[in-house]
Design a binder for these strands. Structure first.
Lengths: 170, 170
DNA sequence: ACAATATGTCAGTGTTGTTGACATTCCAAG
DNA sequence: CTTGGAATGTCAACAACACTGACATATTGT
């Protein structure tokens, strides 16, 4: 609506996408992702954790009581890889690991107070940048941003995303 | 820009920038980035290259004749890290390394025919997914997508992005 | 002549991913 | 009740890719 120039490509609803435009989107993803991770990375470096720890904390916070298998599928890594990270978080008292009541094979993961504190610090840093970007870009742009990102996901990963977010687009 | 009023978001639930919406954007970035890299990764695995090789090929293709220092700044890694990748690409005959004419300290990097071929294969795979996502989302969404991504970049990185893309938004 | 620049290289380290193998515990079906 | 499979944890080895620090070489500019 508020889009000044309607190019002829847009009139038919079918976009004519030049390689140049696509390449630009690719580079935007590359550079933006570095910004996306830069702020939490600084905090993590102080505590000698890495991005993998951040991701685990994030998704445990997002689904408290989740099982290891569920987290594994969400993160898309091997159990050995996740276990290494999870072990340090449990040892450091940031994550709780409780035997399932219904199925005692399962372990339910949740954050301790200390875990919530770190997760909050990381999330706040990341959200600050997102908020600033959203405000610069405007509500409509944000809607488009999420729409394109969702269309880029693998269907398998999109399922996890929809499950977490409830499916509605911002 | 077209953002209307400040709707005092945090007081009511139904607003522009709730933590929930920001968190959703964060997760969208996470899941989308995996999709973004999935297709080239498959090709790279066959040739036993990694993402670092892809990035180098991409930006050399984008700026043929670029210098090592320039590429270093664009990629944002150390010279030791880049050199490891660059050396294998040169040895494998994908990248040319030519002594500068004006300044003989500099090395100008460019792709050989074989390098262009691999870069094309990687780019095509990545562009196919971008194209599909763009088409699903529509022109307006694509515009918003790029706008938000650009607002997320660190200013330092944004300079490189603008230099490569010419500055105009898609 | 000398300092700074651009590049290349060696060695070591850390995070995060992988595969393969194996043990334990527990649920569920025959 | 036994047995197969699922969920989890762990050990070992390995690879990609980032980092730091140190050092070498050629070249440029003052």
């Amino acid at each position: 609506m508020a889009q000044g120039q309607n190019r002829s490509e847009h009139t038919h609803g079918l976009l004519f996408l030049t390689d140049e435009q696509l390449r630009k989107g690719i580079e935007a993803m590359f550079f933006a992702y570095r910004g996306f991770t830069a702020d939490p990375d600084r905090i993590l470096a102080e505590k000698s954790y890495g991005r993998a720890h951040h991701r685990a904390l994030h998704f445990i916070q997002r689904s408290p009581g989740t099982t290891v298998n569920n987290l594994l599928a969400t993160l898309g890594v091997t159990k050995q890889s996740l276990n290494r990270v999870l072990r340090t978080l449990i040892e450091d008292g940031l994550v709780l690991n409780e035997v399932g009541t219904k199925d005692k094979r399962q372990r339910h993961l949740s954050l301790t107070d200390a875990g919530r504190e770190l997760e909050q610090a990381l999330s706040n840093a990341q959200r600050d940048r997102m908020r600033s970007a959203y405000r610069q870009a405007g509500a409509e742009a944000v809607h488009g941003f999420c729409t394109v990102l969702e269309a880029m996901m693998d269907p398998e990963l999109k399922k996890h995303y929809d499950q977490l977010t409830g499916g509605e687009t911002v």
